[in-house]
Design a binder for these strands. Sequence first.
DNA 1: GTGCCGATGTCACCTTGCGACATAACCGTA
DNA 2: TACGGTTATGTCGCAAGGTGACATCGGCAC
Lengths: 212, 212
Amino acid sequence: MSHRDMRDELMSQCDVGYHRPMARWQPDARGRLEAAAFELFRERGFEQTTVADIAARAGLDKRTFYRLFGDKREALFSGNGYLEELLVRVVTETDAGPFEAVVAAFRRVAEEIFADRLELVRARQTIIESSPELQERELRKTGSLVAAVTAALRARGLDETTATLATESGATVFRVAYARWVAPDSDAPLSDLIAEVAAELRAITSAPTETP
Amino acid sequence: MSHRDMRDELMSQCDVGYHRPMARWQPDARGRLEAAAFELFRERGFEQTTVADIAARAGLDKRTFYRLFGDKREALFSGNGYLEELLVRVVTETDAGPFEAVVAAFRRVAEEIFADRLELVRARQTIIESSPELQERELRKTGSLVAAVTAALRARGLDETTATLATESGATVFRVAYARWVAPDSDAPLSDLIAEVAAELRAITSAPTETP
DNA sequence: GTGCCGATGTCACCTTGCGACATAACCGTA
DNA sequence: TACGGTTATGTCGCAAGGTGACATCGGCAC
């Protein structure tokens, strides 16, 4: 029996187990911690889970968790890197108008990242909605995506205001569509919802009602 | 000399002073704590200020701070109640299109709340920008304003999606205008900036670029 | 094997935030 | 004036978040 196997066995009894030094060489500490966190958040809720709990379930130390995540909330937001990368790539490659480009980028994200994961996304969303702290963090993450996309747009030569407005509007469209998609009674594909909501947004802002 | 005067004198030496029991009847504990927090955040920065510091400067106890604020961050976000109230009132009273109503509401806020406080607002903004924690909280506060306005719009008979899109778009316009206004080189009134940005938003989303 | 490096564990510590309880001012009433 | 109830504070202790400093171990180059 390898050291790792011993390790795993200890882990499965878990939760209260007190581990002597013999704990090292985790194959993917990050991944294990993320998984442990997600499980525990679902089982007991975010607030009822301590960082020590998470680390214990992953067979690691509290300190290690903080070295990899910086934050208890952060364990729930690791996919953001890929999201940002994809978003920026599409926006940069598309040469339609700024708003159209952003919407297109979000549709790509919908297809490539969210399409097959409704259940997972719903579980995650439930966790986030249960805690103000997590909602704040989500807002910040969205904000940083927006900033990245805006920067990409500016790199295409657009001015700050135009870039920001296009990105924020696109993000709004995405948020609304996403909310509908995650709602327990939905079944339309996210990408389609995005297109619909984008059209609605145009209708709302495009009608100045001309009162000169 | 009244007990209160003794109190105030002690307060002015402050900061390290250790107060025996004789500390009570603060005329406006909330206000004093807010002021103390604002001062300290400016002097030392948000992270370098502990709640105990704030309480000490206000001549109160740490525990009292938490009874009034719930949160260290919260001390910076007390004006939000009035803001929300005004926003909701204007949106409810206006009978223009939803987006127009929201923009109008933000312009009222600009005139009645922000107009005379550029310096203050800038100081506050500097503090917020210095701390991720505060940025998150600001995002959440904005989010709850948006929710309130959306609800007001829905009370006017609009459907969820329209109400949300109008509110979010209006908020985006406000954010962009506000950012320009706070920028160290600006001088146009916020209300005007809002009108300009609203026009730009229309231009961006209204131009589908027709690629059929 | 030696020796260094990177990942992890251990320990001690500060701060946030809260529950529980004590206490002092305030207010109405007799 | 005295009494009792209400409200705002202070005091104490504690769990959990978060961090710095140092010890330790496995792996890797030599």
